[in-house]
Design a protein around this nucleic acid. Structure first.
Length: 478
RNA sequence: GGCCCCAUCGUCUAGCCUGGCCUAGGACACCGGCCUUUCACGCCGGCGACACGGGUUCGAAUCCCGUUGGGGUCACCA
C-alpha cells in the first residue's frame, strides 16, 4: 500500500507553494489509491502556533483536499503532531548515540559563528569541523561540570549518497557538502532533518513528495535512514513556484496564501484547477478540468523539472470560467452571499440569485460583485460632473428620460419584455434610438454609462424603484 | 562564493526520452474585427518562442560539450 504525507509547519496561513505540494500529494494519493497523511511539524516552538494549525486544516479543506490520517482524525500511526512524538524521537536519539552514529557537541554558537564567518571570508564553504566527534568521557565530564548544554550531532559517514528522484532522475551528492549536522538542539528539541526521517519511516511513508527546496536535505535524511536501518522511501521533488520577479514565492509577493485568495473572491475549484497546471499538464489540450478528471490523469512522473511563475491574471481568467460556466446559479449565489453582505448589499437569497444571473458573465472574482452589482442595490447614486454637463448640453437627454417616465408611471410591474416594447414604442413615436435612447435611460437609472442590460435591470429592481430613480433624475435636472 | 537544479512565445505549457510528421501546437495577456443599446460574455483573426556557440547526423527544439542567464540550497527553520 502506498502512503504519502503533507507535513506543514503551523507558522502561518497555507501558502500557495505549500498548497501546491499538498495538492500534488493528494492527486498522487487519489490517482494511486494511496493513503494520504497530514502531519503537523511543530518542532519549532518559537514560530509554531496552534491557531495556525487550525487554519491550515481549514484552508486545505477549502481547497477540496482531505486526508485519511491526521491530528484531527487520528489513525494507526499517531500521534500526528511532532510535539507529541518527543518520546519516540528520544528513543531513536539514544539508539544513534549508542551505536556511535551521533555524538554530543559542546561548541558554543558564538564559536561556530566565528568559524562560519572565517570560512566565508576565506571564500571556502563552511562545514562543522567535527571537533567534538571524539571527545573522551573526561572531556565531556569537564564540559558538563561547567554547565555547558550540548547539542547532538549526527556523525555523517564519508560517502556519496545516491538516489533516483521520480521527477529529477538520478541524484548524487557527496556528504562532504554538509558535514555533521545537528539533530537535537541545546534545549533538547530534535530538529527537522532528524524527526522527518523517524516520522516518515514509522508512518510507513512510501513516497515523499515535496518542494525542490528540500532536495539538498534529502541526502542528510538518507544517511539517517541508513543508520537506523529503515527502508528508504521514493522521493519526488516538485519544482518550486516563483513570483513575478522569478524568486521563490513568498509573503512579499503580496496575497499568496489560499486564505487571501479566498478572501479575494476566488473559488476553490478554480484554485485547485489552476494550481494543478503549474508544473503539470494533461495529455490533451483542455485546461478546465474537474477534480475527478485531474485525479484520473495525474501522474507524478509527468511533473516538470522547471519552476513556474504564479500568474494571477490567468487564475483570474480561470476563476471567471468557473463563475460563468461551471458552477450552477444556486451554488454560485450561496458562495457570493458573504460578499454581497460584506459590500453592504442587503437582500434575500432570491434577489441575490437574480443579480448573480445578471452579472455572472461580467465578473472574474466574487470581489468584482462590488462594482458590478452596485446598480441593483443603490438607488440614490450621485450624479457626476460629467453627467451634469452631458444633460445640460443635450436637450434630448432629459426629454428621453421624461418620455420614458411618462410611459411607465402608471404601471404596476415591469418585465424585460415590457421594457423592450416600451423602448420600441419610443423609437417609433419619437425617433430616438440606439445610444441616443439607451444612454440617457442608463444614466438616469444607474448613474453609469455602461453595465448590465437595462431590460434585465428594470425587471430585477422592479417598477417602484425604476419610478423612484427616474423621478429623482427628473427632479434633479428639471 | 561552493554544491545542485533549470532553460520553447511576456506568462502557463505541448513537442524532447524513442532526431525527420515542427514553415514549433494550445491557453492567459495584448491588438484588430464581428455580435450588441453600453460594458462584459461569445465568435473570428493577428502579434509572439526553440537563450547563445560549437559539435554528432543526410537531417536537431529534440542527442553531446561549452557559454550565458535564472533559480534553489548551504541554520541549534521547516
Amino acid at each position: 500500500m502506498k502512503r504519502v504525507r503533507f507535513a506543514p509547519s503551523p507558522t502561518g496561513y497555507l501558502h500557495l507553494g505549500n498548497a501546491r505540494t499538498a495538492l500534488f500529494n493528494y492527486l498522487f494519493a487519489k490517482h494511486e489509491g494511496a493513503t494520504f497523511i497530514l502531519r503537523i511539524e511543530d518542532t519549532d516552538l518559537e514560530r509554531s502556533k496552534k491557531e495556525y494549525e487550525e487554519m491550515l486544516m481549514e484552508d486545505l479543506k477549502w481547497m477540496g483536499i482531505d486526508w485519511d490520517e491526521g491530528p484531527d482524525k487520528g489513525g494507526p500511526h499517531g500521534p500526528y503532531r511532532q510535539s507529541e512524538r518527543l518520546e519516540i524521537y528520544q528513543k531513536y536519539v539514544d539508539k544513534l548515540l549508542k551505536s556511535g552514529y551521533a555524538y554530543y557537541c559542546y561548541c558554543s554558537e558564538e564559536e561556530l559563528e566565528k568559524e562560519r564567518e572565517k570560512a566565508i571570508a576565506e571564500g571556502r564553504p563552511y562545514r562543522y569541523s567535527g571537533k567534538c566527534r571524539n571527545l573522551t568521557p573526561e572531556e565531556r565530564a569537564d564540559y558538563e561540570a561547567k554547565g555547558i548544554k550540548p547539542v547532538i550531532r549526527f556523525k555523517v559517514p564519508d560517502k556519496t549518497v545516491v538516489f533516483e528522484d521520480i521527477i529529477r532522475g538520478h541524484v548524487e551528492i557527496d556528504t562532504k557538502e554538509f558535514g555533521d549536522f545537528v539533530i537535537v538542539r541545546q534545549d533538547g528539541m530534535p530538529v527537522y532533518n532528524f524527526v522527518v526521517v523517524i516520522d516518515d519511516a514509522l508512518m510507513g511513508i512510501t513516497h515523499v513528495i515535496r518542494g525542490e527546496d528540500h532536495l539538498s536535505n534529502t541526502p542528510k535524511q538518507i544517511v539517517i535512514y541508513e543508520a537506523l536501518g529503515f527502508n528508504i522511501p521514493q522521493f519526488a521533488h516538485l519544482p518550486i513556484i516563483l513570483g513575478e520577479d522569478r524568486t521563490k514565492l513568498s509573503k512579499r509577493h503580496g496575497a499568496v496564501s489560499v486564505r487571501a485568495l479566498k478572501d479575494d473572491g476566488f473559488l476553490s475549484e478554480a484554485v485547485f484547477n489552476y494550481l494543478s497546471l503549474l508544473g503539470w499538464h494533461p495529455k490533451d489540450e483542455r485546461e478546465i478540468l474537474s477534480k475527478e478528471e485531474i485525479i484520473k490523469q495525474f501522474r507524478i512522473q509527468d511533473v516538470n523539472k522547471s519552476p513556474a511563475i504564479f500568474d494571477r491574471t490567468k487564475l483570474r481568467w480561470m476563476n471567471g470560467v468557473y463563475i460563468r460556466e461551471i458552477l450552477d446559479l444556486e451554488e454560485l449565489t450561496k458562495r457570493a452571499i458573504e460578499f454581497f453582505e460584506g459590500f453592504g448589499y442587503k437582500a434575500d437569497f432570491e434577489y441575490y440569485k437574480k443579480v448573480m444571473e445578471a452579472i455572472r458573465d461580467s465578473i472574474e472574482t466574487l470581489m468584482d460583485i462590488k462594482e458590478r452589482a452596485k446598480v441593483f442595490f443603490v438607488d440614490e447614486f450621485p450624479f457626476s460632473q460629467e453627467i451634469k454637463e452631458e444633460v445640460k448640453s443635450d436637450p434630448n437627454f432629459y426629454k428621453v428620460v421624461e418620455i420614458f417616465y411618462q410611459k411607465i408611471k402608471d404601471l404596476h410591474s415591469i418585465t424585460k419584455e415590457d421594457f423592450k416594447n416600451i423602448t420600441k414604442e419610443i423609437q417609433k413615436e419619437y425617433g430616438f434610438k440606439g445610444k441616443g435612447l439607451f444612454h440617457p435611460l442608463r444614466v438616469a437609472l444607474t448613474g453609469e454609462s455602461s453595465g448590465v442590460g437595462l431590460d434585465i435591470l428594470v425587471e430585477v429592481i422592479g417598477i417602484e424603484r425604476v419610478k423612484f430613480r427616474l423621478k429623482r433624475f427628473l427632479e434633479y435636472f428639471g
